[in-house]
Every structure is written in structure tokens, then in C-alpha cells.
Design a protein around this nucleic acid. Structure first.
Lengths: 190, 190
DNA sequence: GTTATAATACTAATATGATTAGTTTAATCG
DNA sequence: CGATTAAACTAATCATATTAGTATTATAAC
């Protein structure tokens, strides 16, 4: 057989597409091999089995997410930056549902690349929170809150957790603005 | 072979235990059968395959969650009730990690029991929000926010999303109180 | 250019798990 | 007691992951 010129990155991209199309659970090495016109054992030249592939997808997802959100806050600051980041985050989760699954459905041990990517995401949030001049602890609390909100919205939406015919964007806007109002209050020491 | 006296409920309870012990992914029919001293095909007398078992776990989880949180708000109202409910929710997710996974990791089609259970959870939130006298839409927005926060906190915690050595409870308290402050502001029309 | 090396894809084989079909046995009901 | 039903079983099939070992292609050394 001719060499197909596969590499790890190609595998990742294709795997993410498969996941987006039919869910992360449907991402099997068999399916991926078929998509790439290769026999499944060949994939082991580039990936250390299915667990490794899924772990790599998690890292890949995080990188894309950081890129997307970082891009969304360029030239913005304060509430505007936060709202823009949140919007970008949720749009990303919507547009890459299968990949986003890898963000939270994969059980990973420690993984250097993952820690790095996580740190980058945290740094982005830290910078966005700077203008608020909360203390260090309070800043971290607020970031946790924002991240939880975003992740919660993203996953509950994907799983049909929100039944009512109430527009999701409205909910996000309402919740974020409410939280920000509270945060401003904290700042002035109410 | 003697009849083992298995029934669907026994399967569910054991399956949830298995999931809590080693993660929802490790819940296989083979493992469950072994735990129950039965051959795996026997399980099909009570459950319609692995997807059905997982779906049933989702419903089971939701029921337990509703019971737990409902219990937590008895005799309380206003912010106190909300804080108590949230605390109970997060404690539940922590104490039943595998079962809680079924809450969000299972892709279900429509399922009557599930819709009922979801409605019960929503009703609980609706009643807890009554004293705030927000409008109907705003109430629903706020509930979505609370649910997202809780789910986000629960899952990010389980996946090691929070690295910093900052106590989680503090973050939850901070975020909830901040959100509630903002909500009170909304009420008075700021 | 030719040869050595390493990487990549292959086939073959094994193991685990889900699932189905068909059988046996124990409990229940008349 | 006999008939029926439910629940367990064994045997078999299928899909997938994974490993071992082989062949072939590209790359690098000379």
C-alpha cells in the first residue's frame, strides 16, 4: 500500500469532524479509519489508541476555544469584553458540539499540554477581569462563576435541558448582566 | 439456575454504585452482571440493553436530585432557600459522581419519565423563585442561570477544571450572592 | 545511485463487550 | 396437578480495540 501521508493533526481534525457529525460516542477508531481510507490498526502509528485520541481532542478543543475567545475580546474591555467572550464561547460550543463534548466527557489523568491550554484560558479570563480591580481571590471566584455559567449553558443547551421556548441568548444576556451588576456592587463595597 | 429475584430497580441501584465507583464509562453490562452474580444476557430480562440502562440511570438520577433538593428547601424561603438548594445540589453531584454523569452524558431521545422528572425539577425552582416576584420571563431566565451555574460548578469540579487552591464552597457562595444581588437590583428596576 | 534505516500501512489474530436466539427451569395460576 | 409465564441459562454472532508481525515506501547515509 502507498503511504497515505497521515499524521496526528489530520487524525485530530477528522476525528473532530466525526464527533461533530454524530456525537463523540460515535467516534470509533473503526469509523475514523474508514473516513481516512485506512485500516484501523494503521491509526496506531499516529495515536496511542482511542483514549489517547480522545485526550488529544480535549487539548485540541481547548486550543480552538482559546483562539476563538481571545479573538473575540480584541479591542474590547470591561463588560463589553466579557459579553463578547461569552458569546464567542457559546457559539463555539454550538458549532462544534462533538468536539466540545471532548472538553468535558473525557477523563484525563494529568497531561502537560492540557495544563498549558487550561492556563491559557485562565490567563485570558484574568486579563479580561483586570479592569474591575477586584482582589485576587474575588477575581478567581468571579472567573469560576463565569466559566461555570458558560459551561452550564453550553451543555444544558446541547442536552435539551432548556425546554421552554424562551430564547437562549436572552437568558445568557440576562444572567450575565445580572451577575455583572452584582459584581459592580461588590466593587463599591455594598 | 435458581431465580435470582432481580428486578429493574435492583439493576439501577447496582449500576449507579458501579458508576460511582469507577465512572460511568466503566459501567458495562458485563461488569453489572458480574456484580449481580448473573450472566450478562440475563440482564435483558429487566433492561432493554445498555442504552436503556443508561437512560434509566438518567431518570433515576433526576429523581434523586429532585428529592434531595426539595428536602433542602423545606421551611426556607428567599435567598436562604436558594443557597440551601444549591448547596444540596452540589453535594449530591459530589457524592454520586458516576450517577450524576448519567445526568448529562447520556444522549436520550424523548422519554416520558424524563420529561416528568425534568418538570418536577423546574417546578421546584419555580416555587423557590416565587417570593422574588420577577415576571414570568425573567423568572425563567434566572432559573436557567442558576441551573447553569450549578451544573457548571458540578462538572468543572469533577473534571478538575478548577486548579487553583481556592475553596470551591467560597466560590459558590460568592457567585450566588453576587447573582442574587444583581437580581434584587433588577427587581427594584435599576 | 545504492544501501541501510526508520516510518507507515498492511494482514492476521485475540479479547472484550453487546446483543440475539433458543433452551431450561422455577414460580404462579387455574 | 398441569399449563403458562418469567427469568435464568448456553451458544453464537457481531463490532470494536488492540497487539504482533510483515511488507513496503520514503528518507538518509554513504
Amino acid at each position: 500500500m502507498a503511504k497515505m501521508g497521515l499524521d496526528r493533526q489530520t487524525l485530530l481534525v477528522s476525528a473532530a469532524e466525526l464527533a461533530d457529525e454524530s456525537g463523540l460516542d460515535s467516534l470509533t477508531l473503526a469509523a475514523l479509519a474508514q473516513k481516512l481510507n485506512v485500516r484501523s490498526p494503521s491509526l496506531y502509528n499516529h495515536v496511542n489508541g482511542l483514549p489517547d485520541l480522545r485526550a488529544a481532542l480535549t487539548v485540541y478543543c481547548l486550543h480552538l476555544l482559546v483562539d476563538t475567545t481571545r479573538d473575540a475580546v480584541i479591542g474590547k474591555s470591561g463588560d463589553e469584553a466579557i459579553l463578547s467572550l461569552c458569546e464567542a464561547y457559546l457559539r463555539f460550543a454550538e458549532s462544534r458540539p462533538g468536539l466540545y463534548e471532548a472538553f468535558y466527557k473525557v477523563n484525563m489523568q494529568q497531561h502537560e499540554d492540557l495544563d498549558t491550554a487550561k492556563q491559557e484560558l485562565l490567563n485570558l479570563f484574568l486579563r479580561i477581569m483586570e479592569p474591575y480591580r477586584l482582589g485576587e481571590k474575588e477575581t478567581l471566584h468571579a472567573i469560576r462563576g463565569l466559566r461555570s455559567l458558560l459551561h452550564g449553558f453550553a451543555t444544558l443547551e446541547q442536552h435539551g435541558g432548556f425546554q421552554m421556548d424562551l430564547h437562549l441568548d436572552e437568558s445568557v444576556q440576562y444572567v450575565l448582566r445580572t451577575f455583572l451588576k452584582g459584581m459592580h456592587l461588590n466593587k463599591s463595597g455594598a
